[in-house]
């Protein structure tokens, strides 16, 4: 596992830090430095709220290397409230509970562990929004 690669992505993985376009206001995640809408430079950092909804989802039974111990788990496209679509794991959810349009919120969880002695990689996942807060 490349330590530096994971370390470099910490801001977006831990805090959903993306970018915003100065000229048209579009929010970008992950950060790309160039606006997808108007092609202007977009390097102003923007921290997403972490709120969104399930756009589509699937359940993984046959996992890639590094994720075998977590099967079955769910992966979804999340439509963030600021606009971008993000691919992420769902957590704290049973496959039968997921529906398109379900409100979700970002949490920081373990993404994978490099064996018994390697580093632990943390990052964003999304869980069903806890009801008490959505009721406020």
């Amino acid at each position: 596992m490349e330590v530096s690669r994971h370390w470099r992505l910490q801001a977006q993985r831990y805090q959903l830090v993306g970018e915003t376009c100065d000229s048209c206001g579009v929010k970008l995640f992950p950060p790309r430095d160039v606006c997808l809408e108007c092609e202007a430079p977009a390097q102003e950092l923007y921290t997403f709220t972490g709120l969104g909804e399930i756009y589509s989802y699937t359940t993984i039974y046959d996992a890639p290397a590094g994720f075998e111990h977590n099967t079955p788990y769910m992966v979804a496209l999340i439509k963030l409230e600021e606009g971008p679509l993000v691919t992420a794991q769902l957590t704290d959810i049973d496959p039968s509970e997921a529906v398109i349009g379900m409100p979700v919120e970002m949490v920081t969880r373990k993404l994978r562990t490099d064996g018994d002695e390697g580093m632990i990689v943390y990052g964003y996942k999304f869980r069903p929004a806890v009801e008490e807060l959505t009721a406020v």
Binding site: R109, K110, L111, I120
Partner: peptide, 13 residues
Amino acid sequence: NGLDEDVATMSIE
């Protein structure tokens, strides 16, 4: 705790 939780993730929340 769930499979993807530890003291770091729980402390963060």
